[in-house]
Computed example of a mutant assay.
Amino acid sequence: MRVLIAYATHAGSTAEIATFIASELKNHGISAEVKEIREVIDPGEYDRLIIGGPIYVGRMKEVEEFCKQHQATIKGRLIGAFTVGMAFTGDEVKQAEARQVLDTAIAPFSPGRLGYFAGKTDPSRLSFFERTALKVVKAPIGDFRDWNAIRTWITGVADDLRG
Rank of each mutant, 00 (worst) to 15 (best):
M86P: 05
L114I: 11
K138L: 06
Q100T: 12
A139I: 01
G52M: 09
I30Q: 05
A107I: 01
A139G: 01
E97P: 10
S124T: 07
S127L: 09
L134T: 05
A18M: 09
K68Y: 03
A118Q: 09
G12W: 06
I50V: 10
H70L: 11
I37K: 10
R48Y: 14
L102M: 01
T89V: 14
I30S: 08
H28F: 15
V40T: 00
K61V: 04
Q71Y: 05
T19P: 05
L25E: 03
C67I: 11
V136Y: 14
I21M: 13
G44I: 02
G53M: 04
L78P: 02
P108S: 08
K135G: 11
P108L: 04
G90W: 11
L114V: 12
D122E: 09
Y56P: 09
K138N: 10
D91L: 11
V101M: 03
A133E: 12
A22R: 13
A87E: 13
M86K: 02
I51W: 00
R48E: 11
G29A: 00
Q69C: 06
T19V: 14
D91T: 02
I51M: 00
V57A: 15
P108C: 08
I41A: 07
E130Q: 15
E24A: 12
A107R: 04
K135I: 01
P43T: 03
L25P: 04
G52F: 03
I79F: 09
A98D: 01
L49F: 12
E65M: 11
V136H: 09
L134M: 15
Q71E: 14
R113S: 07
K120C: 08
N27G: 03
F82A: 07
A105N: 03
R125I: 07
K135R: 15
K35M: 14
A32Q: 04
P54V: 03
